[in-house]
Protein backbone atom coordinates (compact mmCIF):
# COMPACT_ATOMS: atom_id res chain seq x y z
CA UNK A 1 0.00 0.00 0.00
CA UNK A 2 1.32 3.36 -0.92
CA UNK A 3 1.40 5.63 2.11
CA UNK A 4 3.63 8.42 0.96
CA UNK A 5 2.71 11.62 2.69
CA UNK A 6 4.75 14.56 1.68
CA UNK A 7 2.92 17.73 2.42
CA UNK A 8 0.34 16.90 5.05
CA UNK A 9 2.29 18.02 8.08
CA UNK A 10 3.62 21.23 6.69
CA UNK A 11 0.34 21.99 5.07
CA UNK A 12 -1.32 22.31 8.41
CA UNK A 13 0.56 25.53 9.03
CA UNK A 14 -1.75 27.27 6.64
CA UNK A 15 -4.85 26.37 8.59
CA UNK A 16 -6.90 29.23 9.90
CA UNK A 17 -7.58 28.19 13.44
CA UNK A 18 -4.95 27.56 16.08
CA UNK A 19 -7.02 24.62 17.28
CA UNK A 20 -6.84 22.97 13.98
CA UNK A 21 -3.24 23.87 13.36
CA UNK A 22 -2.20 22.23 16.57
CA UNK A 23 -4.24 19.16 15.96
CA UNK A 24 -1.54 16.51 15.75
CA UNK A 25 -1.60 14.02 12.99
CA UNK A 26 0.71 11.57 14.67
CA UNK A 27 0.17 7.93 13.84
CA UNK A 28 -0.38 7.24 17.55
CA UNK A 29 -3.69 9.06 17.36
CA UNK A 30 -4.82 7.24 14.30
CA UNK A 31 -6.70 4.44 15.91
CA UNK A 32 -7.80 2.84 12.68
CA UNK A 33 -4.78 0.93 11.41
CA UNK A 34 -6.38 0.60 8.03
CA UNK A 35 -6.40 4.34 7.46
CA UNK A 36 -4.57 5.45 4.34
CA UNK A 37 -3.01 8.83 4.47
CA UNK A 38 -3.88 11.46 1.98
CA UNK A 39 -1.60 12.27 -0.94
CA UNK A 40 -1.44 15.86 -2.09
CA UNK A 41 -1.96 19.27 -0.55
CA UNK A 42 -5.01 19.30 1.68
CA UNK A 43 -4.85 23.00 2.45
CA UNK A 44 -6.16 25.91 0.45
CA UNK A 45 -4.68 29.35 0.22
CA UNK A 46 -7.79 31.13 1.34
CA UNK A 47 -9.77 28.48 3.22
CA UNK A 48 -13.52 28.90 3.74
CA UNK A 49 -13.92 25.61 5.54
CA UNK A 50 -11.30 23.50 7.24
CA UNK A 51 -11.85 19.89 8.24
CA UNK A 52 -9.45 17.95 10.40
CA UNK A 53 -9.49 14.25 11.25
CA UNK A 54 -13.14 13.80 10.57
CA UNK A 55 -14.48 10.33 11.33
CA UNK A 56 -18.04 9.21 10.71
CA UNK A 57 -19.62 6.09 12.11
CA UNK A 58 -23.01 4.63 11.25
CA UNK A 59 -23.75 2.45 14.25
CA UNK A 60 -20.73 0.11 14.10
CA UNK A 61 -19.71 0.94 10.57
CA UNK A 62 -16.75 3.28 10.20
CA UNK A 63 -17.88 5.18 7.13
CA UNK A 64 -15.25 7.90 6.96
CA UNK A 65 -11.74 7.74 8.35
CA UNK A 66 -9.52 10.60 9.42
CA UNK A 67 -10.39 12.98 6.63
CA UNK A 68 -8.58 16.32 6.66
CA UNK A 69 -9.27 18.82 3.94
CA UNK A 70 -9.58 22.58 3.36
CA UNK A 71 -12.16 24.07 1.09
CA UNK A 72 -11.00 27.33 -0.41
CA UNK A 73 -13.17 30.40 -0.71
CA UNK A 74 -14.83 30.89 -4.07
CA UNK A 75 -13.56 27.65 -5.44
CA UNK A 76 -15.40 24.69 -6.81
CA UNK A 77 -14.12 21.51 -5.28
CA UNK A 78 -15.27 18.15 -6.58
CA UNK A 79 -15.46 14.95 -4.57
CA UNK A 80 -15.12 11.87 -6.70
CA UNK A 81 -14.86 8.18 -6.02
CA UNK A 82 -16.71 4.89 -6.46
CA UNK A 83 -20.10 4.35 -4.77
CA UNK A 84 -19.94 3.97 -1.02
CA UNK A 85 -16.60 5.71 -0.77
CA UNK A 86 -17.83 8.27 1.75
CA UNK A 87 -17.91 11.34 -0.47
CA UNK A 88 -21.60 12.05 0.17
CA UNK A 89 -21.18 11.26 3.84
CA UNK A 90 -18.41 13.82 4.07
CA UNK A 91 -20.49 16.37 2.18
CA UNK A 92 -23.36 15.93 4.60
CA UNK A 93 -20.99 16.57 7.51
CA UNK A 94 -20.35 20.05 6.19
CA UNK A 95 -23.84 21.34 7.03
CA UNK A 96 -24.60 18.73 9.68
CA UNK A 97 -27.26 17.03 7.63
CA UNK A 98 -26.02 13.82 9.21
CA UNK A 99 -27.65 15.03 12.45
CA UNK A 100 -30.95 13.75 11.15
CA UNK A 101 -29.63 10.18 11.10
CA UNK A 102 -29.97 8.79 14.59
CA UNK A 103 -27.25 6.14 14.39
CA UNK A 104 -24.68 8.54 12.97
CA UNK A 105 -21.69 9.67 15.08
CA UNK A 106 -19.07 12.19 14.02
CA UNK A 107 -15.68 13.05 15.51
CA UNK A 108 -13.09 15.63 14.45
CA UNK A 109 -13.13 19.35 13.66
CA UNK A 110 -14.93 21.13 10.90
CA UNK A 111 -14.62 24.89 10.76
CA UNK A 112 -16.55 27.44 8.82
CA UNK A 113 -14.50 30.61 8.88
CA UNK A 114 -13.75 30.88 12.61
CA UNK A 115 -16.55 28.72 13.91
CA UNK A 116 -16.32 25.05 14.79
CA UNK A 117 -19.60 23.91 13.35
CA UNK A 118 -19.95 20.99 15.73
CA UNK A 119 -19.50 23.31 18.70
CA UNK A 120 -22.43 23.52 21.11
CA UNK A 121 -22.67 27.27 20.62
CA UNK A 122 -23.33 26.88 16.91
CA UNK A 123 -26.97 26.61 16.01
CA UNK A 124 -27.61 24.15 13.25
CA UNK A 125 -30.32 26.42 11.87
CA UNK A 126 -27.84 29.23 11.43
CA UNK A 127 -25.21 26.88 10.04
CA UNK A 128 -27.53 25.59 7.37
CA UNK A 129 -28.49 29.10 6.43
CA UNK A 130 -24.80 29.70 5.77
CA UNK A 131 -24.15 26.35 4.11
CA UNK A 132 -26.88 25.53 1.61
CA UNK A 133 -27.41 22.23 -0.07
CA UNK A 134 -28.74 20.84 -3.36
CA UNK A 135 -29.68 17.19 -3.53
CA UNK A 136 -29.26 14.37 -5.97
CA UNK A 137 -32.92 14.23 -6.90
CA UNK A 138 -34.64 17.58 -7.40
CA UNK A 139 -36.94 17.98 -4.39
CA UNK A 140 -39.10 21.06 -4.85
CA UNK A 141 -41.67 21.54 -2.11
CA UNK A 142 -45.31 20.96 -2.99
CA UNK A 143 -45.80 24.71 -3.32
CA UNK A 144 -45.76 27.25 -6.11
CA UNK A 145 -42.49 28.14 -7.81
CA UNK A 146 -42.54 31.51 -6.07
CA UNK A 147 -43.17 29.98 -2.66
CA UNK A 148 -40.39 27.46 -3.16
CA UNK A 149 -37.84 30.22 -3.56
CA UNK A 150 -39.41 32.41 -0.89
CA UNK A 151 -39.34 29.57 1.65
CA UNK A 152 -35.81 30.12 2.97
CA UNK A 153 -35.98 33.91 3.35
CA UNK A 154 -39.41 33.56 4.95
CA UNK A 155 -38.45 31.10 7.65
CA UNK A 156 -35.33 33.04 8.50
CA UNK A 157 -37.20 36.33 8.59
CA UNK A 158 -34.69 37.85 6.18
CA UNK A 159 -36.96 40.25 4.39
CA UNK A 160 -39.32 43.04 5.23
CA UNK A 161 -42.36 43.29 3.08
CA UNK A 162 -43.64 41.88 -0.11
CA UNK A 163 -41.62 44.06 -2.48
CA UNK A 164 -38.32 43.03 -1.01
CA UNK A 165 -39.33 39.38 -1.13
CA UNK A 166 -40.40 39.72 -4.77
CA UNK A 167 -37.09 41.23 -5.60
CA UNK A 168 -35.17 38.50 -3.81
CA UNK A 169 -37.17 35.72 -5.45
CA UNK A 170 -36.72 37.19 -8.92
CA UNK A 171 -33.04 37.81 -8.36
CA UNK A 172 -32.48 34.27 -7.14
CA UNK A 173 -34.32 32.79 -10.10
CA UNK A 174 -32.35 35.08 -12.35
CA UNK A 175 -29.08 33.86 -10.93
CA UNK A 176 -30.20 30.28 -11.27
CA UNK A 177 -30.89 31.04 -14.93
CA UNK A 178 -34.49 30.06 -14.57
CA UNK A 179 -36.26 33.39 -14.67
CA UNK A 180 -37.09 33.40 -18.38
CA UNK A 181 -38.70 30.00 -18.16
CA UNK A 182 -40.82 30.62 -15.09
CA UNK A 183 -41.52 34.35 -15.14
CA UNK A 184 -45.07 33.82 -16.37
CA UNK A 185 -45.89 30.82 -14.20
CA UNK A 186 -44.74 31.78 -10.75
CA UNK A 187 -47.94 30.42 -9.19
CA UNK A 188 -47.73 26.99 -10.73
CA UNK A 189 -46.49 24.19 -8.48
CA UNK A 190 -42.76 23.57 -8.48
CA UNK A 191 -43.38 19.97 -9.45
CA UNK A 192 -44.85 21.07 -12.78
CA UNK A 193 -41.37 21.94 -14.06
CA UNK A 194 -39.09 19.55 -15.92
CA UNK A 195 -36.35 17.72 -14.02
CA UNK A 196 -33.60 20.12 -15.02
CA UNK A 197 -35.76 23.14 -14.24
CA UNK A 198 -36.66 21.62 -10.90
CA UNK A 199 -33.01 21.23 -10.05
CA UNK A 200 -32.31 24.83 -10.98
CA UNK A 201 -35.32 25.80 -8.89
CA UNK A 202 -33.69 23.99 -5.98
CA UNK A 203 -30.49 25.92 -6.63
CA UNK A 204 -32.46 29.17 -6.72
CA UNK A 205 -34.10 28.12 -3.47
CA UNK A 206 -30.69 27.56 -1.92
CA UNK A 207 -29.18 30.85 -3.09
CA UNK A 208 -32.22 32.84 -2.01
CA UNK A 209 -30.93 32.46 1.54
CA UNK A 210 -27.60 33.83 0.27
CA UNK A 211 -25.40 31.16 1.80
CA UNK A 212 -21.64 31.26 1.91
CA UNK A 213 -21.14 27.68 0.79
CA UNK A 214 -23.34 25.55 -1.45
CA UNK A 215 -23.09 21.80 -1.21
CA UNK A 216 -24.23 19.82 -4.22
CA UNK A 217 -24.79 16.09 -3.93
CA UNK A 218 -24.62 14.66 -7.45
CA UNK A 219 -26.90 17.44 -8.68
CA UNK A 220 -26.99 16.17 -12.26
CA UNK A 221 -27.30 12.43 -11.82
CA UNK A 222 -31.04 12.48 -12.45
CA UNK A 223 -30.85 14.86 -15.42
CA UNK A 224 -30.43 14.61 -19.17
CA UNK A 225 -27.25 15.94 -20.88
CA UNK A 226 -28.75 19.29 -21.90
CA UNK A 227 -30.05 20.02 -18.42
CA UNK A 228 -26.72 18.88 -17.04
CA UNK A 229 -24.86 21.31 -19.25
CA UNK A 230 -27.05 24.14 -18.00
CA UNK A 231 -26.41 23.28 -14.38
CA UNK A 232 -22.67 23.03 -14.98
CA UNK A 233 -22.68 26.43 -16.61
CA UNK A 234 -24.57 27.77 -13.65
CA UNK A 235 -22.07 26.29 -11.20
CA UNK A 236 -19.31 28.08 -12.97
CA UNK A 237 -21.14 31.39 -12.73
CA UNK A 238 -22.03 30.92 -9.08
CA UNK A 239 -18.36 30.47 -8.19
CA UNK A 240 -17.95 34.24 -8.20
CA UNK A 241 -20.07 34.64 -5.10
CA UNK A 242 -20.14 31.24 -3.45
CA UNK A 243 -17.91 28.42 -2.42
CA UNK A 244 -19.18 25.25 -4.02
CA UNK A 245 -18.60 21.66 -3.03
CA UNK A 246 -19.87 19.17 -5.56
CA UNK A 247 -20.08 15.42 -5.25
CA UNK A 248 -20.17 13.75 -8.60
CA UNK A 249 -20.15 10.36 -10.13
CA UNK A 250 -18.91 11.67 -13.41
CA UNK A 251 -15.19 12.33 -13.74
CA UNK A 252 -15.79 14.43 -16.81
CA UNK A 253 -18.10 16.66 -14.84
CA UNK A 254 -15.52 17.06 -12.11
CA UNK A 255 -12.95 17.96 -14.78
CA UNK A 256 -15.32 20.46 -16.36
CA UNK A 257 -16.52 22.38 -13.31
CA UNK A 258 -13.98 22.13 -10.52
CA UNK A 259 -10.67 23.73 -9.68
CA UNK A 260 -9.72 21.14 -7.09
CA UNK A 261 -10.63 17.50 -6.87
CA UNK A 262 -10.60 15.10 -3.95
CA UNK A 263 -10.62 11.37 -4.53
CA UNK A 264 -12.29 9.18 -1.89
CA UNK A 265 -11.94 5.45 -1.65
CA UNK A 266 -13.74 3.18 0.88
CA UNK A 267 -13.94 5.86 3.55
CA UNK A 268 -10.49 7.32 3.01
CA UNK A 269 -9.54 10.56 1.36
CA UNK A 270 -6.87 9.20 -1.00
CA UNK A 271 -5.70 12.17 -2.96
CA UNK A 272 -6.38 15.90 -3.26
CA UNK A 273 -5.05 18.28 -5.82
CA UNK A 274 -5.64 20.70 -8.63
CA UNK A 275 -8.20 19.15 -10.92
CA UNK A 276 -5.80 19.27 -13.90
CA UNK A 277 -3.15 17.46 -11.95
CA UNK A 278 -5.50 14.77 -10.63
CA UNK A 279 -6.77 13.93 -14.06
CA UNK A 280 -3.53 14.16 -15.96
CA UNK A 281 -1.01 13.06 -13.40
CA UNK A 282 -2.51 11.23 -10.44
CA UNK A 283 0.03 10.45 -7.78
CA UNK A 284 -1.75 7.64 -6.02
CA UNK A 285 -2.22 4.24 -7.60
CA UNK A 286 -5.90 4.05 -6.57
CA UNK A 287 -6.66 7.45 -8.09
CA UNK A 288 -4.99 6.44 -11.28
CA UNK A 289 -6.85 3.16 -11.40
CA UNK A 290 -10.11 4.96 -10.84
CA UNK A 291 -9.70 7.69 -13.41
CA UNK A 292 -8.39 5.28 -16.00
CA UNK A 293 -11.48 3.15 -15.46
CA UNK A 294 -9.80 0.14 -13.85
CA UNK A 295 -12.76 0.08 -11.46
CA UNK A 296 -15.60 2.29 -10.35
Amino acid sequence: MNTTTIETKTALDGAVNPDVREAPLSSAQITDYDHRQTVGRITADNPKMACREVNVYYSEKHALRQVSLDIGANEVIAFIGPSGCGKSTFLRCLNRMNDTIVSCRITGHIQLDQDNIYDKSIDVVQLRARVGMVFQKPNPFPKSIYENVAYGPRIHGMINGKAELDELVYASLERAGLIKEVEKRMDEPGTSLSGGQQQRLCIARAIAVNPEVILMDEPCSALDPIATAKIEELIDELRENYTIVIVTHSMQQAARVSQRTAYFHLGDLIEVGETDQIFTNPRHKLTEDYITGRFG
Binding site: T100, R128, F141, V209
Partner: peptide
Protein backbone atom coordinates in the same frame (compact mmCIF):
# COMPACT_ATOMS: atom_id res chain seq x y z
CA UNK B 1 -37.57 12.03 3.14
CA UNK B 2 -36.03 14.24 0.42
CA UNK B 3 -38.77 16.79 1.10
CA UNK B 4 -37.75 17.02 4.74
CA UNK B 5 -34.06 17.11 3.82
CA UNK B 6 -34.69 19.96 1.43
CA UNK B 7 -36.29 21.97 4.19
CA UNK B 8 -33.69 21.13 6.84
CA UNK B 9 -30.91 21.99 4.40
CA UNK B 10 -32.33 25.49 4.15
CA UNK B 11 -32.10 25.81 7.90
CA UNK B 12 -35.71 25.21 8.83
CA UNK B 13 -36.46 23.84 12.28
CA UNK B 14 -38.48 20.66 12.68
CA UNK B 15 -41.72 22.41 13.44
CA UNK B 16 -41.26 24.79 10.51
CA UNK B 17 -40.64 21.81 8.26
CA UNK B 18 -43.75 20.11 9.57
CA UNK B 19 -45.96 23.15 9.33
CA UNK B 20 -44.75 24.52 6.02
CA UNK B 21 -43.67 21.46 4.04
Amino acid sequence: QSMRDGSYALGATKSETIKRV
